[in-house]
């Protein structure tokens, strides 16, 4: 197997070196990848959505459907990991050959105080990253990960149980589904207003101004709602994955 894998890898590498000459030079602004579709985004995104961060505009609007299923991927991971790992019976009754090491309750003096100090700032920053994604690097995924990390930090320094008291299993499952539902619900609302799925400009009747302005405002606002939905899902799913993996599905204690 070792030799075979080496041969496969080398063959693939050799095949790829053949095309090196054919690829465009690194950093060439006129290469096809930088010209055809992406230039359209850079030139028109502000005019069409009033979002200066083109990445957010394309992520949440032009290719919003991809992003919705990207949220779906995270959701699937949580449900799948829960389905495989979660155990309902009593940990003590397990008769597996593999024994878990004895539990030593942590006594976090320094890390505990530091965590208590850091976590509020992390969460504020996470909310800022979600909310300010239209103007600066950020958005639902990044902010959601920061929020999730703050909860994981609590679970790592203290006990998994103490974090689970603040964010119970019921809550993170509901929030994971809810975030996905917010995203898809915005898309569905567009359909109720007569547009295509995820066509935010159909929400224009909700906003004031001339029809054209209202359509742009609708896109701008819908993108924020969508990002909030993503933030919900990513935050709770990061903690969900951590807590299932760290406790081996027992949900009683962490690493």
């Amino acid at each position: 197997m070792k030799v075979l894998s080496l041969i496969i890898a080398l063959v693939m590498g050799a095949l790829l070196t053949v095309i090196l000459d054919d690829l465009p030079a690194w950093g060439d602004p006129n290469s096809p990848a930088n010209a055809h579709v992406s230039a359209y985004y850079l030139e028109n995104a502000y005019e069409q959505t009033h979002v200066p961060n083109v990445v957010t505009a394309v992520l949440a609007d032009y290719r919003g459907f991809d992003t919705m299923f990207e949220t779906g991927v995270v959701f699937v991971a949580v449900i799948g990991i829960m389905g495989i790992l979660r155990r309902e019976d009593d940990p003590k009754s397990s008769k597996k050959s593999f024994k878990r090491p004895p539990h030593q309750p942590p006594d976090p003096v320094i890390t505990g105080v530091a965590t208590r100090f850091i976590v509020p700032f992390m969460q504020i920053f996470g909310l800022y990253v979600i909310a300010h994604g239209h103007y600066s690097p950020g958005g639902g995924f990044q902010g959601g990960v920061i929020l999730g990390a703050s909860i994981i930090l609590m679970a790592m320094t203290g006990e998994l149980k103490s974090a689970l008291e603040r964010m119970t299993e019921d809550w993170f499952i509901i929030m994971t589904g809810l975030g996905f539902l917010i995203f898809a619900g915005v898309g569905l609302a567009c359909m109720f207003y007569g547009g295509n799925f995820l066509d935010y400009s159909a929400l224009a009747p909700l906003f004031g101004g001339t029809p054209q302005e209202a359509a742009i405002t609708a896109r701008y606002h819908a993108m924020l709602w969508v990002e909030i939905g993503v933030g919900f899902t990513v935050m709770s799913s990061m903690f969900a994955i951590y807590s299932y993996l760290a406790s081996d599905g027992w949900m009683d204690r962490g690493l």
Binding site: H36, D61, A202
Partner: peptide, 13 residues
């Protein structure tokens, strides 16, 4: 052809 998000291809999905 159904345009998701109302964007014309190839810019939208």
């Amino acid at each position: 052809s159904y345009r998701l998000g109302g964007w014309e291809p190839p810019f939208g999905i």
